[in-house]
């Protein structure tokens, strides 16, 4: 009996590893497959053989549900954001189901880190932990602390921009270089971050996009803070910018992870209460 169960579990796990479909449909599809194989009783070998190779079964499911293949639009091999789909690129920065660590940047050309894959590698999440319900719960009720943290980072970025703005003539005299581009960046970035943070409250947007927005706003604000402080205080150095870039990666990871972690814990608690009640 155990052998048959582990045979079925192994096959379902292998299908899951090839499956791009996500959310409730994914869970349902894998449950259906497990049920169908269990019906085979003694003839599990034959049932698995009839279901076909795991990657073909996963491909058939993705085909039925029209799952996207996840390919990027590229220029000279580098992904870019010139095409449509900013929401999809934002969601891609925290997608535990996608095992790729590098995904297209939200803005511009190049790569961003998929913090969902990082969370999986750190053992904080399993690839299929996030379904539609968990994401909706995280986006609708549990983003407050992440939004507060992002708001604080944006405040710091704005304060740093004011500091740089007041010192821009001194910096120009010290470096002999125009500070127009730096001034525009330091002033405009906090505004962009505030817009992203505000948009995270828009319930018309997909939940998987919304949960990444406070993290993206905070990360961008942290980089802007670092750049403004670097220009204002040590215009010839790079250390503050480097430190801010590392801090931005931490922002991206933690502020996307924490709301979904809280949602998962709520789900687990509700499940436990229900079991105890039954």
């Amino acid at each position: 009996m155990t052998d048959r169960k582990s045979q079925i579990d192994d096959y379902v796990r292998e299908v899951a590893s090839h499956l791009k479909l996500r959310g409730r449909a994914r869970r349902q599809a894998l449950d259906d497959l497990r049920d169908a194989l269990r019906e085979a009783a003694e003839a599990v070998d034959d049932a698995i053989k009839a279901a076909g190779r795991a990657q073909d079964y996963a491909a058939s499911l993705d085909d039925q549900f029209g799952t996207r293949d996840g390919r990027f639009q590229t220029i000279l091999g580098a992904p870019n954001s010139l095409g449509r789909g900013i929401g999809r690129r934002m969601a891609g920065t925290f997608n535990p189901l996608d095992e790729r660590l590098l995904v297209p940047r939200v803005f511009g050309i190049g790569w961003a880190v998929n913090m969902g894959a990082v969370a999986v590698k750190l053992g904080w999440l399993r690839p299929d932990d996030l379904d539609d319900e968990v994401l909706a719960e995280a986006a609708d009720h549990l983003m407050g602390p992440a939004q507060l943290a992002a708001g604080a980072q944006i405040g710091l970025a704005a304060a740093s921009a004011v500091l740089f703005w007041n010192r821009r003539n001194l910096v120009r005299a010290e470096t002999g270089q125009s500070q127009t581009a730096n001034s525009v960046f330091s002033v405009a970035t906090p505004m962009v971050c505030a817009a992203i943070l505000t948009a995270s409250n828009d319930r018309k947007l997909p939940a998987e996009t919304r949960v990444t927005m406070p993290a993206l706003a905070a990360a961008l604000a942290t980089i802007a803070t670092g750049a403004s402080l670097q220009s204002a205080v040590r215009p010839k150095g790079q250390l503050i910018v480097l430190g801010a870039s590392l801090a931005a990666l931490v922002d991206l990871l933690l502020l996307s992870y924490l709301p979904v972690r809280s949602a998962l814990e709520r789900g687990w608690r509700a499940d436990l209460d229900w079991r105890n009640h039954v």
Binding site: Q28, D32, L33, A36, A50, A51, D56, Y57
Partner: peptide, 13 residues
């Protein structure tokens, strides 16, 4: 079966 089961899942969904 590898074609029918996914189809059934989609129909149920």
């Amino acid at each position: 079966a590898g074609t029918i089961y996914p189809l059934l899942t989609r129909l149920r969904n």
